[in-house]
């Protein structure tokens, strides 16, 4: 019941052992099986990713990430290297997070500085609903509406191998950016709201106009802008459905944004179903998945940390 008291005497591990032997908390025992199931699931995910990709790390070594040769073979082990899709992931996620972060700041400023209360009460729940829409819905919209618009814009002619269908790195980044913008806006809004009311009052009493208030308050919550960008990057890097439908699915380095390409997730989505036909491909895709997990989790962890710090800082003011 009182682990802290026990822990104070003797070493930490001893105290824990005594505590567990002396008084197993029935509540803990009742809830333990579910928690153990959860731990087993996460351990299984890690184990499958690591053991499944081992073969590739041994065969390809660091070259796996340093070249873009992707030549499957049914007879012998083909060569599978993922520089192009990995670069594609970073580029698409970069475009998406830039768009999402820009829109997030604009929406937060509009809602807090300009929108009348009635408008805000309608807009906020609507944005919440848009954020809840399934990703495949945005995918279908991107494929049927955004890609044709990109094609008609003629931007593809800027590239040597511009996409004839409008599906490209840019299209994928744009659709994903629009999709996650409401979520990024929520991150910025939360920090904006955390700024103490006395500061807002002080700004009003100085006669500051909307953009001047926004400039001061955004300066106070600038950590949350970075958090929104980093969190968006993490979500976009792992996004699969929308990207597979809009990126064009070709192994191609993202030197020109209006060419079709692949991201790690779209490569997995389009190749994994047949990977068992090609020796080595399944392992290569698991290795690529492992790299994607690391990129996406690292930015999500960092983003959440930044977001919490930004809110704390906003509450305490500039001090």
């Amino acid at each position: 019941m009182k682990p802290d008291l026990l822990r104070a005497s003797g070493s930490r591990r001893n105290a824990l052992a005594t505590h567990m032997r002396a008084k197993p908390d029935p509540l803990l025992l009742i809830l333990a099986p579910s928690a153990i199931a959860l731990l087993a699931i996460s351990a299984a995910i890690a184990a499958v990713l690591v053991t499944g990709s081992l073969d590739t790390w041994i065969h390809e070594g660091p070259g796996f990430l340093a070249s873009s040769e992707w030549s499957p073979s049914e007879e012998r082990r083909g060569t599978y290297r993922v520089l192009a899709p990995l670069a594609g992931t970073l580029v698409v996620a970069g475009i998406a997070s830039a768009i999402a972060a820009y829109l997030a700041v604009a929406v937060a400023v509009y809602l807090h500085e300009y929108a009348p209360r009635r408008v805000r009460e309608v807009v906020e729940p609507s944005l919440y609903s848009i954020a809840a829409l399934p990703t495949v819905v945005f995918g279908m919209w991107g494929l049927s509406t955004v890609a044709p618009l990109v094609r008609q814009s003629g931007l593809a002619s800027l590239c040597a191998r511009g996409s004839p269908t409008g599906q490209s790195f840019f299209t994928a980044g744009l659709v994903v950016g629009l999709m996650i913008a409401p979520y990024a806006a929520a991150v910025v809004s939360e920090a904006y709201r955390a700024v103490p009311f006395t500061y807002v009052e002080a700004l009003y009493s100085l006669g500051a106009k909307g953009f001047e208030r926004a400039r001061v308050i955004l300066g106070m919550v600038k950590g949350s802008l970075l958090a929104a960008a980093v969190l968006s990057f993490g979500r976009a890097a792992g996004e699969t459905t929308v990207v597979t439908l809009t990126v064009g699915n070709a192994v191609n380095m993202p030197f020109c944004l209006f060419e079709p390409g692949h991201t790690v997730s779209s490569l997995i989505a389009s190749q994994f179903g047949n990977a068992y036909l090609y020796p080595g491909m399944e392992s290569a895709l698991l290795a690529a998945a492992l790299v994607m997990v690391l990129v996406s989790s690292a930015s999500t962890t960092l983003g959440l940390k930044l977001a919490r710090a930004a809110i704390k800082r906003a509450r305490g003011g500039e001090a």
Binding site: A44, G238, A289
Partner: peptide, 17 residues
Amino acid sequence: AALQAISEIPSVVVGLV
């Protein structure tokens, strides 16, 4: 910690596993 990790994994990876 396990929940945090699972929530950060791109969902396509869950399908792979």
